[in-house]
Design a protein around this nucleic acid. Structure first.
Lengths: 338, 338
DNA sequence: CTTAGCACTCATATTGCTTGAGTGCCAAGT
DNA sequence: ACTTGGCACTCAAGCAATATGAGTGCTAAG
């Protein structure tokens, strides 16, 4: 059918353009893909596709390149994401195994993802709000200084100093510590505000000052800049395009250094499946000519955070989607083992 | 004296080249700096400087640019590092104050340094070996799983999982924890191997398995990849040069993603003062056409780690040296407050 | 030792020209 | 109604020839 062949032509254009990075013409298409029709016919289809806004010409005497809309259609309707090969599977497994702690897992993951996709990779630390308290520790580092340590079941550790106006006795501290431990251990972080609401009141008057300070700090640490940390890797891949493309890398690098931007990229992700945002769709200044492929990781229904890649709009979408998904799967597993 | 004027000329060349990024000619020099001599005289001096290898001509009919050797001389003998202004001082202070934990201090510092110098900034986490144990915590997360947490007096936290073959009772754990705490609290990390050498033997036979595992893990965490973490920021500044210069940014970005390379950059630093490595002197593949300005931070005699910037050889050396030094001073102060 | 004068060099910019990839359209074919 | 070969047309990119001028080195005079 006609409509079908047009999609075939679009797919061929996207695939060729992604590999060659050069506008593709009707003749080349007819040669490289056996579409069973002549260049002239393809030209007609191309004219139609251009009319509909899926492809464009850089200049009159050049071939066509896909528009953002073209990539969109490609991703939505044409491409099929193949499962990863056994070899890749093994490589991922090997790369991630042997991590000593959460930081290590994050760093290895981002490197792996960057290497596999040959793009800039982003990995967000597991959210505190979506995980549970494994342990809380409260230590006096001097008579008026406390150190609060929060350990999540994902292996994430947060620490905060607490400055007390009056000296704290070991006994009082121990009292608060004990109550706190039994109240919060194993609980989900997002439940803490509720759970600790009446914590201070229930304590002996003697230790209320400590309790109040500790609860305040704990809630602050558990909620404030909860999902802030994002690891980036593979920025060198950006330079690969450098000269040849309108992809000026400075704004991209700048955008990648803005926590706020990254949070938006990683936050607005569908809870299931792989999210692809193409060009303008990223809605981020500096990333207008890049695409972002992300997915969530963590057990289903309790997704911890996101990871993904950022690359030029002419990236290998099926490949990126496949790798991102596979890596997310393995990270989920590794973190649950921690 | 003649020799003096030649240095003056070199300084003028370096300064002009650093600001304009274009080869500077004799005429322009005579106009912009009042050297009191004519362009012809300057040409003679330039010929001599070129003979000695301090400057070079990109091509016959162009002005001169400094060579690595020229920058070296400039840094060693000519430039004077002015103290930072009160405004800058305030800005630094304000930027760094209000950090909630060590991670926060590191991130803020690297951003600050990148912003002030407009270069790529590197900040190394405080070395464990050079700091002391503030606290050790040992927690059972299941009957056979322990979590060891190390807190340094710099605020740095390390954590490790310990997998036991046999179940561990709370009492035994408490025993080991108590001994460990009293043995290591306040001690310098580099003394730990010695201190803990006979730890296991001194324990009750019942808890020796635990003790052995804990000590092994602790020593591993305290010594193995001790200085590995380095924070990078301001990579977008690299792109500023991008097109216009032989500074291909890909190799630079690649080098900056290699922990080993970074360690070499940050490790080989004079214990006092600011270290400047120019071009080839960096002895790092990918950084041949960049310079690295680093210094150590931390109390004198007990330097914790290094920080610095990486930029093109035609950077503003006095400015970079000044900023690096100033930031190091403030970081030292902030970390000691932690 | 300094300086003016001058011939020389050579990267860069400009211009005009050629080439050819690729298109759009039309008329003929199935 | 779609497909296809033919053909005129467009225009970026490459190339050669030329012009420009910044900057130099050298020489001879001050």
């Amino acid at each position: 059918m006609l409509e079908d062949r047009r999609l075939e032509v679009l797919r061929a254009i996207v695939e060729d353009y992604v590999t060659t990075h050069e506008p593709v013409g009707s003749k080349a298409l007819a040669e490289r893909h056996n579409l069973g029709v002549s260049p002239a016919t393809i030209r007609n289809d191309m004219a139609a596709l251009e009319e509909e806004g899926f492809i464009a010409q850089p200049h009159t005497s050049a071939g066509r390149i896909p528009t953002d809309l073209g990539y969109r259609l490609f991703v939505d309707r044409i491409s099929d994401v193949k499962p990863i090969s056994l070899g890749e599977r093994r490589a991922i497994e090997q790369f991630l195994s042997g991590s000593v702690d959460l930081d290590d897992v994050m760093v290895r993951t981002v490197r792996l993802l960057a290497q596999v996709t040959r793009q800039v990779a982003l990995v967000q630390y597991p959210s505190l709000t979506r995980s549970a308290v494994r342990h809380v520790e409260l230590i006096a580092t001097s008579t008026t200084r406390l150190l609060l340590i929060l350990i999540a079941d994902t292996g994430r550790v947060e620490q905060r100093q607490i400055e007390m106006s009056a000296p704290v006795t070991e006994q009082n501290l121990s009292d608060v510590r004990g109550r706190l431990l039994s109240d919060v251990t194993g609980k989900q972080f997002f439940l803490l505000p509720e759970i600790l609401e009446r914590f201070t009141e229930k304590c002996d008057p003697e230790v209320r000052a400590i309790a109040a300070a500790v609860v305040a700090t704990l809630l602050d640490a558990a909620t404030e800049h909860v999902d802030e940390r994002i690891v980036i890797g593979g920025t060198a891949h950006l330079a690969r395009y450098g000269e040849a493309f309108p992809l000026a890398i400075q704004p991209v690098l700048e955008a990648l250094e803005e926590q706020v931007v990254l949070m938006r990229l990683m936050g607005e992700v569908a809870t299931s499946g792989v999210t692809v945002r193409i060009g303008q769709e990223t809605a981020v200044e500096g990333l207008e000519s890049t695409s972002v492929v992300t997915t969530r990781y963590g057990r289903q229904g309790q997704e911890l955070a996101s990871l993904g890649v950022v690359g030029p709009t002419h990236m290998d979408y099926p490949g990126a989607m496949r790798s991102v998904q596979a890596v997310a799967q393995y990270v989920t597993r590794i973190i649950e083992e921690q």
